[in-house]
Amino acid sequence: MFRAPPARFVVNGAEFDYAGDPRRTLLDFLRYDLALCGTKKGCDHGQCGACTVIVDGKRVNSCLTLAVMQDGCEITTIEGIGTPHHLSALQRAFIKHDGFQCGYCTPGQICSATALLQELRNGWPSIGEPDDDLRERMSGNLCRCGAYSNIIMAIREVIEEPAA
């Protein structure tokens, strides 16, 4: 057995310990150990964004970081963003604009866009064209159904709606 110190971290407000095989990615920990299966495994190599979660306020690929590396971190998955009866503004907008077909990439899209809203509030720059910038900012999330234009419409609506 390979050695590693335990890690203690928070997922969607609840504290968890991990003391297993250091090879466990955060993605596999969420899905297999916590049964939080909203987070999806697409490519498992950081190319598709389906596994996107929010760690300490930043969107990251949960497939490219280890569970043991999360010691002291605060993680939010799609299960921590909204519930069927209490959807987030982005979730409502995705439904309104048909921002998905099969839905497999959707949890990653929503987590990514949720963090993107904060990046915009923080004034983070982007090299996208000014009128087309959301496409650049969402380029880490692929959608094989090709719902991109509706995804962008949904995110744009949330950005443009006045703060509640």
Binding site: G46, G49, T52, K58, R59, V60, N61, L64, T65, S112, A115, L116, E119, P125, S126, I127, R137, S139, G140, N141
Partner: peptide, 23 residues
């Protein structure tokens, strides 16, 4: 960086994805 070395900021933003750049 953005004011004195916009080249560096823009080169970083031309690479990878937002998720990867956060790590």
């Amino acid at each position: 960086i953005r004011q004195g070395y916009p080249l560096l900021s823009r080169a970083i933003l031309a690479g990878a994805s937002p998720q990867l750049r956060n790590r």
